[in-house]
Amino acid sequence: MTKTLLFLSIFLSGLAYSQEDLLKDIDTLKTTETSPPAFKALQVVTAQSTKLSAKNEWYIVVAHRFGDISTGFKNFFGLDDASTKLGVIYGVTDGLSLSFSRETNMKTFEGAAKYKLVKQNDNFPVDIVGYNVMAVNTDLDKDNYPHLKFGDRLSYLTQALISRRFNDQFSLQLTPSYVHKNLYDPNIEDKNQFLAGLGGRYKVSKRISVNAEYFVNFDNHSFYKNPLSLGVDIETGGHVFQLLFTNSQLNSDIGYLSNATGEWGKGHIFFGFNLYRVF
């Protein structure tokens, strides 16, 4: 926790020092888009947006989710308990990017491919992007699962990201999703899960937008909750910094969608951030 705060302190200090130059560059970042994207960040809040990295562009991603803020001073409003995700994203082409990440919670590795299918233009009303993930849960061990095989550690996600940029301020995204888990507890969830998500972005100033997203899991007997997240995007040159509140502590794509445990109505929510640096 101390190391994380130290990192943020150093980063934000450097960011403040160079902000004037960075702001001059924000609107000239490398892109081949003929019109502005529906979302400036690669995520709406935690779920993916239809934005892709440009060809040969690298992103470093740091995502952090603190603990349940309802615990109060006992865990310093969640700051004592945190889950961190580190990842990289590479634009193979303007329409295809590959990513790799690792999250501390469940020690999960994820590899993903994101690819543009259709671009919003005068003749077509929406962007359509495909997103596929394979995750490996390395936290499972044979003491608890004596017959554990490597394949049992795997889970998969397939999504269609469908967004529309209505104007300079407002964008919406619909995200039908399918999750498959090789190892699962039939008492609390299904092996195959279908979800539908709705997310949006509203720009309140030149550099700031407010975002929200909600997913409905049609696994009717699931122990887990439907993920709901609210966030703020801050654009500063080569950085996009997202502050957020969510009822799902997990950063991984599959974990976020299918393993949310918090309840907004009871104050069981998690504060966090996503930080991107483009190269």
Rank of each mutant, 00 (worst) to 15 (best):
S18N: 08
S18Q: 08
Q19F: 11
E20K: 14
E20Q: 11
E20N: 14
D21M: 07
L22W: 13
L23S: 09
D25E: 14
D27A: 04
T28F: 13
T28W: 08
T28G: 13
T28K: 15
L29H: 15
L29Q: 14
K30S: 02
K30D: 04
T31Y: 06
T32G: 14
E33W: 12
E33H: 10
A38H: 03
K40A: 12
A41H: 09
V45C: 11
V45N: 10
A47W: 06
A47I: 04
S49E: 12
T50H: 10
T50S: 15
K51Q: 10
K51W: 14
L52I: 00
S53V: 05
A54C: 09
K55S: 04
K55C: 01
E57V: 09
W58N: 02
Y59C: 00
Y59V: 00
I60G: 10
V61C: 08
V62A: 11
H64R: 06
H64K: 09
R65V: 02
F66T: 00
F66P: 01
F66D: 01
G67I: 03
G67N: 07
G67D: 09
T71V: 04
G72L: 05
F73V: 06
K74C: 03
K74I: 08
F76M: 03
F76Y: 04
F76L: 02
F77N: 01
F77D: 03
F77I: 00
L79E: 10
L79T: 07
A82C: 03
S83R: 11
T84A: 06
T84E: 07
G87A: 06
Y90K: 13
Y90T: 03
Y90A: 05
G91V: 05
T93P: 13
T93K: 08
D94T: 00
G95M: 07
S97W: 06
S101T: 12
S101G: 15
R102I: 01
R102T: 01
E103F: 10
T104G: 09
N105Q: 11
K107N: 15
K107C: 04
F109C: 09
F109L: 08
G111D: 09
A113R: 05
K114F: 10
K114Y: 15
Y115G: 03
K119Y: 08
Q120K: 11
Q120I: 06
N121V: 05
D122H: 14
D122A: 13
F124S: 05
P125Q: 01
P125L: 00
D127Y: 03
D127H: 03
I128W: 14
G130C: 07
Y131D: 13
Y131P: 12
N132M: 12
M134A: 15
A135I: 02
A135C: 04
T138D: 13
L140D: 09
D141L: 05
K142E: 09
K142D: 10
D143G: 02
D143H: 01
Y145C: 00
Y145M: 02
P146I: 01
P146V: 01
